[in-house]
Amino acid sequence: MSITYLEAIREAQAKLLRDDERVFIYGQDVGGTFGGAFKATKGLAKEFPGRVLNTPISEDAMIGTAIGAAMHGMRPIVEMQFADFSSTALNQILNNAGTHYWRTDVPVPITVRLPSGGTKGSGPFHSQSMESLYAHYPGLIVMTPATVEDAYSMLIEAVAIDDPVVYCEHKYLYYHLKAENLPTESLPTGKARIAREGRDLTIVTYSAMLHEALAVAEQLATEGFEIEVVDLRSVKPLDTNTVLASVARTGRLLCVGESFPWGGATAEIIARVTAEGFHLLDAAPQRLNAKDTPIPYHPNLWSAHRPNAKEIARKARALLRE
């Protein structure tokens, strides 16, 4: 048996619908026989009548409705057709869901699925990675699964969590990434994973960039360097301890993320390591993000806009020489 990242997301939702009658799925084109723009809900409307509901193109109202349902005992999963479009629901996510527990003592257990990140030819409005933006605001948990196993287990955990979860699933991994089986156990949310052990340099990353980082580690191993790769799994909470422990072993830190460069998850990691583990560092920590422009359409431009294995390797080699 082989299962893709996308199939794992579908299977997780099927399990959630099967096991928990509070769960319903709400989003554009998720219902009927269509099953979503990426088919993440394929067949679910038929299997679970009345619980996989198409919505109008109304991101604000989709989230508002989910918030109202969640505070009255439901566990809605909202599928944004693309992460980019969640910008039109920012008010509901940040100001309503994100503030609700703090203000009223009533948590809002919604899960917002964001098909995130770039693929060739998708352009400025179908390619964004918004985890840093959501992590900036209080009151939200932000998951960034990088593996088939995490895509499955973290989505199930997201729905179980009593607070709002922004679940960033990477479109680039949908079809490419495969596993033999669905997992039977997993790390809890908030715990980072050492994806590869090493002693010369730590690369901290998440989501699709994990695979670029692992490819670089493989390549640099042939040059005699042992790179440790940390998969954050969630950017909020951010497992600072695992990162610090890794930097304690390697003395060098490179952070890689696909979101825009100003601020964000990579900057946050460097700020924390510098503040709490300055003495552990043998060289100034570095980071690599996408470029500070909208995401280009043409594959030639797109592949240079996002961090890629070549750029990560160049940055890693420079850091290893210091």
Binding site: T65, G68, M71
Partner: peptide, 25 residues
């Protein structure tokens, strides 16, 4: 009794969701 946010119009869909939850129940 829902707790309004300052961003007007936002509570209409929240009310809709609360009513849907009641229907689901």
């Amino acid at each position: 009794q829902l707790a309004m946010i300052s961003h007007l119009g936002a509570m209409v869909s929240v009310t809709v969701g609360a009513l849907m939850a009641k229907r689901f129940h």
